[in-house]
Design a protein around this nucleic acid. Structure first.
Lengths: 212, 212
DNA sequence: TAGATTGTTAATCGATTAACAATC
DNA sequence: TAGATTGTTAATCGATTAACAATC
């Protein structure tokens, strides 16, 4: 547990800062001021400095921020300097899309197990996931315990989601990434992040009324 | 354009209210007070009443809210009483997962066109999407114009995302649902909603540090 | 009517923005 | 050194919560 409680709004902005810093890095930009970053990212310079100073003084007066350094620092704050063992539960279309994304874009996150109601003999998409096995859900709890899985990714149908969550929580995962359309009840001490795609689509419908 | 500007925080909660009301509806619950809804959904009763009263007085003193009525009202506020024509741009694993989700769960959203760099002769997943054709991206702008597509769903690789956004914006879509890992620059008057899955995963990593 | 619960105003809390002294 | 820009405190703004009169 950290000393100061950082608001969710701040945490939600960190990955975004990191993405923009990565782009700057790619372009070979070495330093950036909060003012220039503000123009790029759309937050006020003041907010950028406030956000970063929750975690330490990463800048230098009169100079700005080192792009490389700040990128690394934010990674560390987020915990992206560590390695994570993941199990994907539910290997339908969404499960496969997520597995593919992680395998190709998230080097710190390792898919070590894939679970589905049926054992799928062969990955039809023919992708390698750190030699992850595809297993039936029966072996889920045992696998999480024995392999010390850190994160369970839940992509099962809505009506199965809570059952899966209970199982993986009980088996000792530290985090749950919930991609189903339901809110899960999770014991305190286990982190949960939701990607509610339907909520996002419905918000889009709302904003389209204003548009034209 | 509406008279009062409603904050994004409120809009983000509406789909969630609607989901819980749908569950109550399924269970045959006819009325609910803000107090009971609060217990269920986790927002304060005060906030629930404030949120709803941005749009009108849907309740009745001494009684509460009619579940059916409130469900319908929120749907109308969100614009879910209308029909939307959609084009999916990028038909990889994520595009297929999204197409499948929409076809099976979102009756008001109609996929009328699917675009990819290559024309895929046959949908390998063998799903019907309102007879949507699969076409190459070359025909994208023309299709959007002639078919009056309302929403473009962007699931192409990050480096192509802005190009696609420019194309569909220019061709006259009213909304863009962005599932790529980049932020898009979109002309004012076109609604955008982002599902940044990688940001969500990175936030999860952060919260796992507090957990244990 | 009495009890319950809304709709709405007022109070509080937290987050964002502005300002500026510190300092590179 | 002079100029630039941070780190941080203070001011403002907006969102959430509390309170209660209105009313079903």
């Amino acid at each position: 547990m950290r000393n100061k409680q950082i608001s969710k709004a701040v945490i939600k902005r960190l990955p975004r800062y990191r993405r923009y810093l990565r782009e700057l890095q790619k372009k070979g930009v070495e330093k950036i001021s909060s003012k220039d970053l503000s123009k790029l990212i759309g937050y006020t310079a003041s907010q950028i400095r406030q956000d970063l100073n929750n975690f330490g003084g990463f800048g230098q007066q009169g100079y700005g921020y080192s792009v490389n350094n700040l990128y690394e620092e934010i990674g560390t704050i987020l915990g992206l300097d560590k390695e994570y063992k993941m199990a994907i539960v539910g290997y339908g279309r969404l499960g496969r899309a997520i597995a593919n994304y992680i395998a190709n874009n998230e080097p710190k996150f390792h898919i070590i197990g894939i679970f589905d109601v049926k054992k799928i003999i062969q990955d039809i998409d023919d992708v390698e996931f750190d030699d992850a096995q595809i297993m039936t859900c029966k072996s889920l709890a045992g696998f999480i315990r024995s392999e010390q899985v850190d994160i369970a990714v839940i992509t099962v149908p809505a009506e199965k989601a809570q059952l899966v969550a209970d199982t993986v929580a009980d088996a000792g995962v530290k985090g749950i990434w919930n991609l189903t359309a339901v809110d899960l009840e999770i014991p305190a001490g286990i982190a949960v992040e939701n990607v509610h795609m339907s909520d996002s689509l419905h918000a889009l419908a709302y904003y389209m009324q204003d548009a034209e």
